[in-house]
């Protein structure tokens, strides 16, 4: 394994990808964020995995956080949200540059897998790899039900943002 890594197949990892969600309705804007996203990027295969323990998402109102975990995302049953895909465009991780890319893969949220192509940015500066993305997730796609009583407070499409720096594994 060690030999394999040193033979040029560079891998990048991160334990502090910042992942946020944003729900906007005429009645209420709700945001939550976590700095504890884990991610792995395999340079050779352009494979990328980002995983978040959904319980680490923090809201500014704790009761809202409890309802998010208990009633919507069911974090006891489905503790992780995960996106695993392959960058569609070639990226040279050894040279500085900005790349607007798309990543095609599987988004797993609330126990439901959805094939998605997500736009994002890869930046390489002095050998440091950074990623950022913003995309929408439809609650209905992941079997997250919003009851009629609270319907107007929670958006049907949630905006997800993720950004972070990778450390290279040699």
């Amino acid at each position: 394994m060690l030999l394999h890594f040193s033979a040029g197949a560079q891998n990048f990892v991160s334990k502090n990808i910042r992942i946020g969600l944003f729900s906007s309705t005429p009645l209420e804007d709700i945001r939550a964020v976590s700095d504890n996203g884990n991610a792995v990027l395999v340079a050779k295969t352009r494979e990328i995995v980002v995983q978040l323990a959904v319980k680490t998402l923090e809201f500014d109102r704790k009761l809202m956080q409890e309802h998010f975990n208990e009633n919507y995302i069911e974090s006891d049953k489905y503790p992780y949200a995960k996106f695993k895909g392959v960058i569609d465009q070639p990226v040279d991780f050894t040279k500085d540059g900005n790349y607007a890319v798309t990543v095609t893969g599987i988004l797993s949220v609330h126990g439901v897998d959805k094939k998605r192509t997500i736009p994002g940015k890869v930046t390489v500066t002095n050998g440091v790899v950074q990623i950022s993305t913003e995309f929408k997730v439809a609650c209905v796609d992941h079997d997250i039900k919003i009851p009629k009583l609270v319907f107007t407070k929670i958006a049907e499409f949630i905006t997800i943002k993720a950004e972070g720096k990778f450390n290279s594994l040699k």
Binding site: I30, R31, R61
Partner: peptide, 20 residues
């Protein structure tokens, strides 16, 4: 009925919720 009395002092814009 639950009321949130004070807004959290957390200024992190990514965490802010707002009721209109």
């Amino acid at each position: 009925r639950n009321f949130t009395l004070f807004k959290s002092k957390n200024q992190d814009p990514d965490k802010k919720s707002k009721i209109y």
